[in-house]
Amino acid sequence: MLRYAVRRLLSLSLTLLVASLVIFVAIEIVPGDPAAYMLGMNAAPDTVAALRAELGLDVGPVQRYLNWLGGMLSGDFGTSYTYRTPVVDMIGDRLMISLPLALYALTLSTLIAFPAGIIAATRRGSAADVSVMGVTQLGVAIPNFWFAMLLVLVFAINLRWFSAGGFPGWDQGLLAGIKALTLPAIALALPQASILARVMRSSLLDTLDEDFIRTARAKGLSTRQTLWRHALRNALIPVLTIIGLQFSFLLAGAIIIENVFFLPGLGRLVFQSISQRDLIVVESVVMLLVFAVVVVTFLVDLAYAAVDPRLRRTN
C-alpha cells in the first residue's frame, strides 16, 4: 500500500513539475516581455524598466523559472501588479469561497447521485428507473450557469428565499455563508449528479451481472444482501474515477458560476486579472488549480487502493 502510494506520489509530482514548466513558458515566455505586455503599448520606457526590475525579469529565463518555483514552494507567489499586494494573500481570501463551494457541490452531487443510481439499477425498467434516466438525461444537457440563472430567477427574484448574489463573508456566521453558497452549489451539483447517477447505475448493472453475484446468491443471500455486501463496493471502483474527474470540472464550473452570483472567488479574480493584464495573478491561479486537480487525482488513487486489494500489492 505504502509503495503504491509513494509510486503514485512520485509520478504525480513529476506531472506537477512539468505542468509548472508549461504554465511558465505559456505565460512568461510566449508573450515576449511580460512587463511591456502588462503595461500595454503606450507605456513609457522607464516604467517598463521599473516593472522589469520589480518582476525580476533582468535575469535569464531558467533562473526566473527556478526563482518562481522556489518562491511558490516557500509560499511567495509574487506581487500583483495591479493591486500591489502579495498574490498569495489575494488567492487565500478568494480560496475561502471557491474551495467550500466546490466541496459543497461535490457533497450534494454525491448525496443525490448514489441513491438515484442505486434505485435505478436495482429496479431496472421500473417507473423509478425511467424517471431517474429521464431527469438525468436532461440534467446532463443543462449548462450549469444557465441553470444557475434560472435558480436566481425563481428562488431569489420571485420567491425571495435567497439573495440573488454576493457573499456576506464568513465573519457573518457559518450559516449565512452556507446560505449564500447554497444556490451556486445546487447549480453546480445537479448536472454533475446526473452524470454520476448514470455512472453509478451502469456500473452497478455491470457488477450485478458478474459471476460472484451468482455465487453469493447460491450461498443463500437475498438480492438485497447481495447488493449491499457484494455489488456496491465493486461498483464503486469506476464511480471513484468519475468523482475524481468531476472535481476538476467542479473547480472550472465554480469559476463560471461565481460570475452568475457575483461571488468574490478565484473565478472573479482571474477574469479581472485577465482584463487588467495582471499575468502574475493569472499564472498563480492556474498553477493553484492544476495543483488542486493533481492532489484530487492522488486522493482518488489512494481511495482505489483502499477499495481494491489487487492494487495494494504489486506482485
Binding site: R214, T215, L221, S222, R233, P309, R310
Partner: peptide, 28 residues
C-alpha cells in the same frame, strides 16, 4: 417462497461453478 429458498440455498443445497477465476468477490 423466495425467502424460504434463500434459507435452502447454502444451507440445504450448495453450488459450485465453472469459472473459479470470476466466481469469488475480488474485494473480500
Amino acid at each position: 417462497s423466495e425467502a424460504q429458498m434463500c434459507q435452502v440455498r447454502g444451507n440445504d443445497i450448495g453450488m459450485v461453478f465453472q469459472e473459479p477465476m470470476t466466481a469469488l468477490n475480488p474485494l473480500l
